[in-house]
Computed example of a mutant assay.
Amino acid sequence: MTGKHEGADDPMGSPHRPGEDWRCRDDAEEWPCQVFRRRMWTLYRHNRRQLVEVMGRFRDRAVDDLDDLSREQADARFVGWVADPPVRRRLRSV
C-alpha cells in the first residue's frame, strides 16, 4: 500500500500499517493488528460511525487484494471489532 500520508493523526502514517499481504509490517499479525486497533479506537473514540467508515474503506481495498477473503470475513476482520473495542491490559500490583 502506498500513498501520501499527511498529518500526525493519519493512521497510515504511523507504525503498524499493513504490508501488501495485509499483515502488519511491525508485528506480522493479520492487519489491523491489536496495536493499530487501539490507536484507531483512541483517535475515533467519540465518533464510532466515522471509525466504521474508515475501516470500511480498508475492508474494501483488502477484498480487492486478497482473493481468499470473503466479504463476511473482511467485515469481521476490518469492521467487526469496532463494536467490541480493544481492552487495555491492566497491570496488577501484587
Rank of each mutant, 00 (worst) to 15 (best):
G3E: 12
G3L: 13
K4M: 14
H5S: 13
A8K: 15
D9S: 13
M12G: 08
G13T: 09
G13D: 12
G13F: 09
G13S: 10
G13Y: 08
S14K: 14
P15R: 11
P15T: 09
R17I: 03
P18F: 01
E20N: 11
D21G: 03
W22F: 09
W22T: 00
W22A: 00
C24L: 02
A28L: 11
E29N: 04
W31R: 01
P32M: 05
P32S: 05
C33Q: 07
C33G: 04
R37G: 00
M40W: 02
W41F: 10
L43K: 04
H46N: 15
H46W: 11
N47W: 09
R48L: 12
Q50L: 14
Q50M: 11
L51P: 11
M55I: 02
G56T: 08
G56N: 12
G56D: 11
R57L: 14
D60N: 15
R61K: 15
A62C: 12
V63K: 11
D65Y: 06
D65R: 12
D68P: 02
S70E: 07
E72P: 06
A74G: 07
A74K: 06
D75K: 07
D75C: 06
F78T: 00
G80M: 04
G80H: 04
G80D: 05
V82T: 13
V82Y: 02
A83K: 06
D84I: 04
D84L: 03
D84S: 10
P85A: 03
P86M: 01
P86H: 01
V87P: 01
R88H: 05
R90H: 04
V94C: 00
